[in-house]
Amino acid sequence: MADAPGELHKRIAEIVVERLFLAVAPEEIAPDESLTLKYGVDSVRLFDMVVGMEDDFEITFEDEELTLENFDSLARIAAKVAAKQAGND
């Protein structure tokens, strides 16, 4: 079942902090902040987090969706996850 937008953002923020071992509270990450630029997350760790997110949300991203740009902020991640949950992507 799809999450409500607010809930989805909150969940994603928690997952990002947990899986990337960020020393910041989930609510402190602004939706459009770049995870790579602001928090120094490299592409390897970001990919590891994306794969983990597939498990958490029971979704699968297509290969062509797997770009750094699609997952570099909470807002972008939430958009991809929401589209998957809605079956639009």
């Binding site: 390897v44 994306v50 794969v51 290969d63 797997l66 770009t67 750094l68």
Partner: peptide, 16 residues
Amino acid sequence: ELRRRSKFRGTGGSGQ
């Protein structure tokens, strides 16, 4: 997983 990571990172080809 390696192929997908490769694609994501843009390191080499995806092998596919």
